[in-house]
Structure formats: structure tokens, C-alpha cells
Design a protein around this nucleic acid. Structure first.
Lengths: 175, 175
DNA sequence: TAAGATTGAACCCTCAATCTTG
DNA sequence: CAAGATTGAGGGTTCAATCTTA
């Protein structure tokens, strides 16, 4: 695997092997691949659990949670999409399915006839709380239990650097 | 958001707010959400770039790379699936599309008539090297450039704890 | 013209069913 | 019967096209 030994150079993160194929130095490979694989493993497990227990997908739970986090338990679809990091198209269909289950309802906005707000119903609010409780316990079990407090803080700091925050997402709209 | 103050208790990672909705303590929220959002952001950017430059998806590049990493530039579909962390079904279709582009070919295995091996063609091998080179540079740009060497090692160590390594994936098959 | 939302097409992925061979 | 592979169905997601309204 012909690892590069000049650990002083911050830039040399990968090498070309004798056969012409590129490969990272070991810690780099493990950090990047580890991010991908850890994400895949954890989200699969959490998603399956959430689906089995509440018939919700991770994205649907996030939508419910974002709605529940606002004062009026409602948000415009476009605002919800941007907060969830999903396309407006996807959010529209997620709301379709939540509405069909009676967890959410669409309401017209009187100040702007183009807009639609999704609002939690009583059932939606109750499911949001129940699902969040079990989901949080699951995340605790599969993720936080393997980390020290110090490491949690470290990860929080590191991931905050990738926060993008691309203009539109940061406009602090009223709730 | 009514944060819990007993930082000595390692277990208290979330609280129930005055309104009944659960929320994590801030560093926990940022660590977990940060993992999800960072993964989403980075893979989207890398995937788009890879698609634009080489017409490959992240998974297709991984398949090509795994094949190129073996001595014979070939692997059984089931072995490839387990190394990529994808379903055999998905791998079969990825190989379909790579084969249609002349990057890979399916070969029968003489010792087991049920098995099929995917082998890199000359064109596939060349694309693998080119795509890897630009992809590695992209990962460097969007990921490693924001991390110190120490942090890379830290992340590698942390993510290794989530390695699952569930029996079948760990049987060191010959290449 | 542009913004908010919806819809159709297409891709990535998994699961279950099927077919073939050990 | 079990293992390797393929195929059909279905869900999650995005993009482009469309419709309505600011």
C-alpha cells in the first residue's frame, strides 16, 4: 500500500500505488470511509426501528419535529423544506402522506395566496412526542453511548465547520 | 430551551421542554445533527461533481475502485456487494450499467457455475484511475482541508468503533 | 417576471420472489 | 435445502415542467 511517511506535510493525504490506483493514507481513508459507513449503518438501523415502531421515516420524523418546534405548530412548506434540507418537492409529498394519516393538515395563508402551511394535528403532535422519545433513546443507544462527553463536544465543533448556511437557509424567518 | 445542568451525569443527553417536545442538550444535538447534515452536504456535492465529470455515481465509483483494488481486477458480485455495503440486487444493476458502458464485463466462474465475476475492462481501469484522482482531490477540498491531522486521526479512531464487521463481511476471502 | 407549490419522470436503493446450481 | 444472481415492485429523493398568484 506504499504509505507516505512525511507526516509533516499536511497536504499529502493520498498516494498513487505501484499499480496506478490512488489510495489514501490510512487515517485519512478511515476518517472519510468511516464517516460514510457510520452514517449508512446508523441511519439504516434507526430508520428501520422508526418504521417498525411508528411507521415513520427519518425525514418524516424530522418534518414533524420541525413543525412541533414552532410556536404555532405550523410552517410554510418552503420553510420546512429548507429547514429539513430537502427539496420542496420531497416535502410536499411527505406532507401528502402525513396528511393522509391525519397527522398534519394543510392550511392556506391569508397574507399570501400562493403559500401553504403545514400544521400539526392533535394526533400529529402526540405522535411527534412519542416517536421523538423512542427515537432519542435509540440514538443514545447506537451513537452517544459509544462516545465520551468530550468526544461529543469535539464532533459538534468539527461538524459545525461544514455548516454551509447558504444565505437562504439562514434568513431567520418568524415562526 | 431549558438545558440540563447536571453535566456530571453522562447519561442525560436530552430533556423534555416545557411544551412536551424532547430536545437534546446542545452539544449532543450538534454532534448528531452535524453528522447527518455534514454527510448529506458532502455526498451531494461530491456526487454531483462525479456525475458531471465522469458520469459516475459515488456507488459506481466505489464498485470500480473495489474491483481495481484486487489482483485480478475482478470479484464475485456477492463479494463486491458486501465490500460496498450494498445489496446484491443493487450491485447487479450497477454492474449492468457499467457493463453497458463497456467499463466492466461479467465472466462465468469455472469452479462454481452459480457465480459471476465482474472484471474491469481496459476502459474501466482507466476511468477508475482518472475518476479516483479527481474524486480524491474533491474529498481533500471539501473535507480534509477543514481538518487538522490530529482531527483526522481522531475521527478515524471514533468511527472505527461503529465498524459492525458482522461476520460475513469479515471473512477474508481471497482476491 | 419571480416565488410557492404540485406533479411526472427518472435514479438510487431494498425487499421479496424466482431461477439455477452446489 | 442453501447459495449466487437476476428481476419486479415499491419507497425515498431530485430535477424539470407546470400552474397559480405576488
Amino acid at each position: 500500500m506504499a504509505a507516505s511517511d512525511h507526516t509533516t506535510a499536511t497536504k499529502a493525504c493520498y498516494d498513487v500505488g505501484r499499480d496506478g490506483l490512488v489510495s489514501w493514507s490510512q487515517p485519512h481513508a478511515e476518517a472519510w470511509m468511516g464517516l460514510l459507513e457510520t452514517h449508512k449503518r446508523l441511519t439504516r438501523e434507526l430508520d428501520a426501528e422508526l418504521e417498525a415502531e411508528h411507521g415513520l421515516t427519518l425525514s418524516a420524523l424530522e418534518a414533524l419535529t420541525r413543525l412541533g418546534a414552532t410556536a404555532r405548530h405550523g410552517l410554510r412548506l418552503s420553510a420546512l423544506a429548507s429547514r429539513c434540507g430537502l427539496s420542496l418537492s420531497r416535502i410536499s409529498r411527505i406532507i401528502d402522506s402525513l396528511e393522509a394519516r391525519g397527522l398534519v393538515e394543510r392550511r392556506a395563508v391569508d397574507t399570501d395566496a400562493r403559500a401553504v402551511e403545514a400544521h400539526l394535528t392533535e394526533a400529529g403532535w402526540e405522535l411527534a412526542r412519542r416517536a421523538q422519545a423512542t427515537h432519542f433513546a435509540s440514538v443514545q443507544r447506537v451513537f452517544f453511548e459509544r462516545l465520551s462527553e468530550h468526544e461529543v463536544a469535539l464532533l459538534a465543533e468539527i461538524f459545525s465547520r461544514f455548516d454551509g448556511c447558504e444565505a437562504t437557509a439562514c434568513e431567520g424567518e418568524a415562526e
